[in-house]
């Protein structure tokens, strides 16, 4: 099953690269989003990134989160494992966090609290809740399942000099948003802007990627921001260093390393 999905993805991507100038003619809106998810959430076989998150409230006060994220794909668009180690704030240093993402059921999450030397599994039935206090939800960080929304191509337009598909996603079941509009770069299929609408059908969150870098041939959004329009709170994310295809071993994603960081990967 996973292999079939991977195959489809490869085919889709193949088509994308084969016909970069007129993809809209051949790709359905769903296929565009699928390609977007693949490039945004599943780039490379694995990834290591040192990430700086600035949580900035309306009054300009900041909280910092500095973390190293290890990510390994198990199937394109499907299973994934995340390992997150916090460097900052200093009083939470050594705190680690791990996510197993499954294609067909809720994620598993574990947290290690060093001050009481405790690993706890965290039941994650709220994928909409905030990721470490930021404006990103868990879902924003690890992606949504493609079949959860229905898609419509609204138009194609330029955004900051890049031509984009503008796609509207409407959730089929209950979701955090009632409507999402995404500007997806026609060339690299990364989301350049996303708007989330709430139950009152008002814009409440806005995502923007304002720096895209080519890393080992993989286009990567290295500077992004998620702004909560309603509260004035925003989260700025900078990928300070990013590497792909390092061959991160399966054993890293285990309780053992939660308690003692894998120094091989995280210094």
């Amino acid at each position: 099953m996973r292999n079939i999905k991977a195959l489809i993805m490869i085919l889709v991507l193949g088509m994308v690269w084969a016909k970069p100038s007129f993809p809209g003619d051949t790709l359905t809106p769903e296929e565009i989003v699928r390609a977007c998810y693949a490039n945004f959430y599943y780039a490379g076989n694995d990834m290591k990134a040192r990430i700086l998150m600035k949580l900035i409230d309306k009054g300009g006060q900041e909280r910092i989160r500095e973390l190293t994220m290890l990510r390994k794909n198990y199937a394109e668009g499907g299973g994934q494992k995340y390992f997150i180690y916090f460097h900052q704030p200093s009083d939470v240093k050594n705190t680690t966090f791990m996510v197993y993402k499954y294609p067909d059921r809720d994620d598993d999450r574990w947290l290690f609290i060093p001050a009481i030397n405790l690993v706890k599994r965290i039941a994650a039935n709220d994928k909409y809740s905030s990721f470490v206090g930021s404006d990103f939800s868990y879902e924003d960080v690890s992606g949504r399942k493609i079949q959860e929304d229905s898609y419509r191509l609204l138009k194609e337009e330029e955004l900051n000099g890049k031509s984009c598909f503008v796609i509207e996603s409407l959730p089929k079941g209950s979701a955090e948003y009632t409507k999402r509009i995404s500007w997806i770069d026609k060339v690299n299929y990364l989301p350049l802007r996303e708007e989330f609408y709430d139950k009152q059908n008002e814009l409440y969150r806005q995502f923007e990627a304002f720096e895209i870098k080519d890393i080992n041939g993989i286009p990567t959004a290295t500077k992004t921001v998620m702004k909560n329009v309603k509260t004035g709170h925003r989260t700025e994310v900078t990928f300070q260093s990013t590497e792909y295809n390092l061959g991160i071993g399966d054993d890293i994603f285990s309780e053992r390393y939660l308690r003692r960081r894998p120094t091989e990967w995280i210094k």
């Binding site: 939470v92 609290i113 001050a115």
Partner: peptide, 9 residues
């Protein structure tokens, strides 16, 4: 600090 961090998470 870590409890509060957990709360935030």
């Amino acid at each position: 600090a870590q409890y509060l961090f957990l709360m935030e998470m």
